[in-house]
Design a protein around this nucleic acid. Structure first.
Length: 1090
RNA sequence: GGGCAAGUGGCGGAACGGUAUACGCGGUAGUCUCAAAAACUACUGGUCGCAAGGCCAUGAGGGUUCGACUCCCUCUUUGCCCACCA
């Protein structure tokens, strides 16, 4: 692009009514006295305007047409309708924040802005965009913060809410404020509890003893994510394990479905990989080992992915928590007294170990022989049974068969306790031999050439090392040559280096050929002996590997494993062996998942109480008549599976969180609610007898696993979200509009008695509505299908959030959605059609953290520069999907840019030089160039926005600005296009400028500009002239000649600059890429001077 | 230990296999000013050269190609996630 020398006019001219009024009536109407850019004033003005006009509030019921495809085609350039309610529903969701009173982190704003830019873009493309916001205010984060500042969580929630919503307003996002949710709102958690009950009834909730993290100093149970390398996140003291009864959700029942669906999701690949890994499917076999003791027999099942190594199993290891171990201590197996005490002692130590200790031990394996023996079912060999804490109760069966020859952990353990090691897999024929060398010598190169003659395949060679591929049969010869070369001193540099032997499927060993103190000769003698001694090369290498304390993990041939399995190749052996095991009845095919059931209960205060009661009466009843009940209807699956636990009736929801003073975690492992008698003691919903409430609250991840459903139904009080299952309730919606004002505030700030009385109110109110009716018609009477609203808006079209939620939140949401489908509430099972993870924002090279004290709070920047500047800067500082670095100087530069844009637009209006009409007349070069620039920018910005490449979109707008600023005249189209393009990033200033130019509704409802290919073409084409791939000249060629290779070649070769290099030398080849490049490849000259 | 990213000027970062360093920050000089700030103008990877121009540069080393930041191997560094997963 040619550089224009004309000066950019940066002074806003005085307002001259006679000049302006005719051409810019809207500007004149605005009759502004000051034309300086004042972000505070402008941003307040337009935020008020948007609120008043409900600019971003779609009519959720305006789209009765069911089009489950949802989002319009990516990159669609169709013109928008310009009116909300007419476009296609587009659910633009961002992960809602958990609020802290410290205020919104700039990282939050980064994510929200990125999401909002996309939403605004989609809105201008003609979609009816729904962009809701809420607060994930329940849960451990918020409670911990309350603990820290010494305030009641409810009080803290009120403060945080106010502060957070103020900030969320200030950043200028196009939120649908009518639809906000807070997870601690009883009208919200009523449904969280309802969902819990649905899972319970479906048999997806159960109780189990689990060891949980416990901080002795804070006297509280901690979630896994609060344990940082074995220490409490809050106080830093060491975390211990404690066994407690806990509620679990059977997410593992959905493991296969959760895994299989991943392939079809349009999600950030990284997140998909993380989910697959988290689910961690592994195929293998469960094999039964008989255990012998003096008094009896028992069996232990083990899970293995390597049944091919069964013959190599030389001992067994049990987890300390394994039930057999417990029975051992009950003397069921009556082992010798000495062992009894040792085992008891070991288990005691293992269980008292803190996480920190286990990490500090560097995974040094410990264990104890139980004195028991097991029978290896394939060869009937007796093998010892050990207990060791490297085996985990939580995976597989909590017991393993140990194959030290082919598993590193078993190997380490066997080495330490001198247990038998028996190799059963032989590496296959191909392997590589390599050696490392610090400096080449000429002799060494000779040696290599000799090897190559032998047919040894060259694999790799660089400055420091070489790797050769050698067939097993050639190995002897290889070593001989190596030996010779050493004797010839070619290897003199090799002292202290290693010979690395790599088999076809992975590294096996590094053999120390030359130890530091030994002379070369000594070592070679050893090698010579070795070579002679072992005619079977593999054995030699195996021995070497064995000496090197390495076990072989790779694939190969099965050996030492009986006639049936010998000589099979591992991949073929595994299925065959499993078949054999099944035939013999000693094992079966089994799939295991790394995914564990979801531990849902928390012994905490700040969460939705789990809506169950325990009734002794019903417990007895169920236990006594279990077999009968199964076939009758009286109890649901959850109640039968968990005798005595009875679900709260729907009309009694919510179970309000009592408003109490003593809310801090107890040291007992019980929830603070357990101490409140008026809460605990209640009636059994089933038999009416005395019962006790569950006092645990549910995990905060449950709150956030369904919030996107609630957004579309916030004004509806008697269903969680619109669904045909709740069809009877549609009428009642409107009546409940008043909910947020009255009920919520009471419940948040009321006393215990108030909240209890409110429970009554709710009850009676709900009884009048259809609230209790839906439980009757679920799920049988409902037809599978969607209500119009759910069909129109869900699943979410675009979900943007942090990669830190790759696993838990996204997986739990998917699980809950699947359960909803299975309940017949919806007809889809994946909640987020498209998900994109944004990157991490850092501050001047360092991660933002409280401990570093470099957390950026956006408020001060918004006050100083305005939200528009900050938004633009955040989007500019790096690729949105990758994150970026926040520099204070950078934001000042962006502020300049915003001011320049402001000035430019005012200049267009107020100055003669920038006459908006003049460009309408002359179809000259400048006009064409301006058109081209405009269309080019539209194309670039449009494509970049679709792919979330915000930084380059802004860069291209800057280029466009730089172009416009130097133009003598700018058309109205040019300037209004510019405003439209920048409006998703800078919503306020663009709205202001839009109104003084166009005075239409809102720039945010204007249609996104389209571009036409015909304007993108340049008149001339620049063709790069290369000689031997090096740029020597650039030709400017008329567009018409671009495809004429002959002509281009002639022109190019005549170019003086090219001539200099062509120098009449013979041309071997001419590469011509039309319109781009012509490359002359010259024949190489002997002493090529290139 | 496993998985996933990423290494480009002083800095943040651009580059469908085709003029590396767009855009911005910072810096230098200048215009305006009594002066400063702001704003604007010009220059700004390294190196040799008066200049024209040349040469060298995308973590390191190889490979593929007429041509490699881009594709393929090997290594290395950094960041993130998971981690005794049988």
């Amino acid at each position: 692009m040619k550089k224009q020398s004309s000066k950019i006019n940066t002074v806003i001219p005085k307002y001259d009514p006679s000049l302006v009024e005719k051409k810019w009536p809207h500007f004149a109407k605005a009759s502004r006295s000051k034309q300086d850019y004042n972000p505070q004033e402008i941003e307040k003005k337009w935020q008020d305007y948007w609120n008043k006009n409900k600019t971003y509030q779609p009519d959720l019921d305006a789209n009765p047409s069911v089009d489950s495809a949802g989002s319009p085609q990516a990159g669609s350039l169709r013109q928008g309708s310009g009116q909300a309610g007419q476009g296609k529903p587009f659910y633009n969701l961002m992960m809602f924040p958990y609020p802290s009173a410290e205020g919104m982190h700039v990282g939050n704003m980064y994510a929200f802005t990125g999401s909002d830019v996309y939403g605004r873009f989609k809105r201008m493309q003609g979609n009816d965009v729904f962009e809701p916001i809420g607060l994930d205010g329940f849960g451990i984060h918020s409670e911990n913060y309350a603990l820290k500042v010494g305030r009641h969580p409810k009080e803290q929630a009120r403060i945080s809410e106010e502060n957070f919503y103020r900030q969320l307003h200030a950043i200028g996002n196009g939120f649908a404020w009518d639809n906000k949710v807070e997870t601690y709102d009883p009208d919200y958690y009523k449904w969280t509890q309802w969902i819990f009950i649905q899972l319970f009834k479906k048999g997806l909730a159960y109780r189990k003893k689990a060891s949980v993290n416990f901080c002795p100093s804070c006297k509280t149970v901690l979630a896994d994510e609060q344990v940082i390398t074995g220490k409490c996140e809050r106080c830093g003291s060491e975390v211990v394990k404690k066994d407690l009864e806990q509620w679990f959700f059977k997410i593992t029942d959905y493991a296969e479905r959760l895994l299989n669906n991943i392939d079809g999701l349009d999600w950030t690949e990284k997140v998909k990989i993380a989910q697959r890994q988290w689910i961690g499917r592994s195929e293998g076999a469960e094999v039964e080992f008989k255990v012998q003791s003096r008094q009896g027999r028992d069996k232990i099942n083990v899970f293995t992915t390597r049944p091919d190594t069964l013959y190599g199993a030389t001992f067994m290891v049990l987890a300390p928590e394994h039930p057999i171990v417990a029975s051992l201590l009950n003397s069921k197996f009556k082992i010798q007294n000495s062992k009894f005490n040792e085992v008891k002692e070991y288990i005691k130590i293992a269980q008292s170990k803190t996480e920190q200790e286990r990490i500090a031990e560097g995974r040094e394996k410990t264990g104890i022989d139980t004195g028991l023996t097991a029978i290896n079912p394939v060869n009937n060999e007796e093998i010892p049974v050990w207990v060791a804490d490297y085996v985990l109760m939580g995976y597989g069966t909590g017991a393993i068969m140990a194959v030290p020859a082919h598993d590193t952990r078993d190997y380490e353990f066997a080495k330490k306790y001198n247990l038998q090691i028996k190799p059963v897999i032989k590496p296959i024929e191909d392997f590589y031999i390599g050696y490392v060398k610090r400096a080449w010598s000429k002799d060494f190169d000779k040696f290599i050439k000799e090897l190559e003659k032998l047919g040894v395949r060259f694999k790799e060679k660089n400055k420091d090392s070489a790797i050769y591929e050698v067939k097993e049969k050639n190995l002897l010869r290889f070593i001989e040559i190596a030996k010779e070369s050493v004797l010839q001193n070619a290897w003199h540099d090799l002292v202290g280096e290693k010979l690395i032997v790599i088999f076809g499927d992975g590294e096996i060993a590094s053999i120390e050929l030359f130890e530091e103190n030994n002379p070369v000769w000594e070592k070679m003698k050893t090698l010579e002996k070795t070579v002679r001694k072992y005619s079977d090369i593999w054995e030699m290498l195996y021995e070497s590997a064995y000496r090197e304390r390495v076990c072989y993990l790779g694939s190969g041939e099965v050996i030492n494993s009986g006639k049936d399995w010998e000589d099979y190749f591992v991949p073929d052996a595994i299925p065959k062996i499993i078949d054999d095991l099944e035939k013999k009845g000693i094992g079966k095919r089994k799939i295991h998942y790394h995914l564990r059931d979801w531990l849902i209960s928390r012994q905490r205060y700040w969460g939705p109480p789990i809506p169950l009661v325990f009734c002794e009466n019903c417990a007895k009843k169920i236990k006594n008549q279990k077999s009968k009940i199964k076939n009758e209807g009286g109890f649901n699956k959850g109640e039968i599976g968990n005798p005595g636990w009875i679900a709260i009736e729907d009309e009694d929801l919510p179970v309000l969180l009592p408003d109490v003073k003593d809310w801090k975690p107890k040291g007992t492992g019980e929830s603070p609610l357990a101490g409140i008698e008026s809460f605990v003691n209640t009636k059994c919903p089933n038999c009416g007898g005395p019962a006790k409430r569950e006092t645990d609250v549910s995990d905060t991840f449950l709150d956030s696993s369904w919030y996107f459903f609630r957004y579309i139904s916030t004004e509806i009080n008697d269903v969680p979200f619109p669904s045909p299952a709740f069809s009877q309730t549609q009428q009642a919606h409107a009546e409940n509009d008043a909910r947020s004002g009255s009920t919520k505030n009471q419940s948040l700030h009321g006393s215990l008695s108030e909240t209890l009385s409110k429970t009554k109110d709710l009850k009676s109110k709900n009884n009048q509505t259809a609230f209790n009716s839906f439980s009757n018609d679920l799920p049988s009477s409902s037809k599978i299908g969607n209500s119009a609203r759910t069909a129109a808006w869900l699943p979410v079209d675009m979900y943007i959030g942090g990669a830190e939620h790759s696993v838990l939140h996204l997986l739990y949401s998917r699980f809950i959605t699947m359960v909803f489908k299975d309940l017949g509430l919806i007809d889809f099972e994946e909640p987020f059609s498209k998900f994109r993870a944004h990157g991490l924002l850092i501050k001047e090279g360092a991660k933002m953290s409280k401990s570093r004290g470099n957390v950026v709070i956006p408020d001060a920047y918004i006050r100083k520069f305005g939200a528009d500047t900050l938004r633009l800067y955040l989007m500019f500082l790096g690729p949105f999907k990758q994150g970026g670095d926040f520099y204070d100087t950078g934001i000042e530069g962006m502020h300049k840019f915003v001011k320049r844009v402001w000035t430019l637009v005012h200049n267009v209006i107020l100055s003669k030089a920038k006459d908006p009409d003049s460009s309408a007349k002359p179809q000259n070069d400048r006009f064409d160039e301006a058109q081209r620039m405009m269309h080019k920018t539209i194309k670039k910005v449009t494509e970049d926005l679709e792919e979330l490449r915000y930084n380059t979109a802004i860069a291209s707008m800057m280029e466009y600005y730089n172009f416009l600023a130097k133009e003598q005249s700018i058309s109205k189209e040019q300037i209004s296009t510019f405003i439209k393009l920048i409006s998703p990033f800078a919503p306020h200033v663009s709205e202001e400028l839009w109104h003084i130019i166009e005075n239409q509704n809102s720039v945010h409802k204007a249609s996104w500009p389209g571009y036409e290919e015909k304007y993108l073409k340049e008149k001339n084409s620049n063709i790069i002239v290369q000689i031997n791939g090096r740029v020597r000249d650039v030709l400017t060629v008329d567009l018409g000649d671009v495809n004429d290779k002959q002509k281009i070649t002639e022109t190019a070769s005549r170019s003086p600059k090219a001539q200099k290099y062509l120098d009449n030398r013979p041309i071997q080849k001419i590469i011509y890429v039309p319109g781009k490049i012509i490359n002359f490849v010259l024949k190489e000259l002997p002493n090529g001077n290139g």
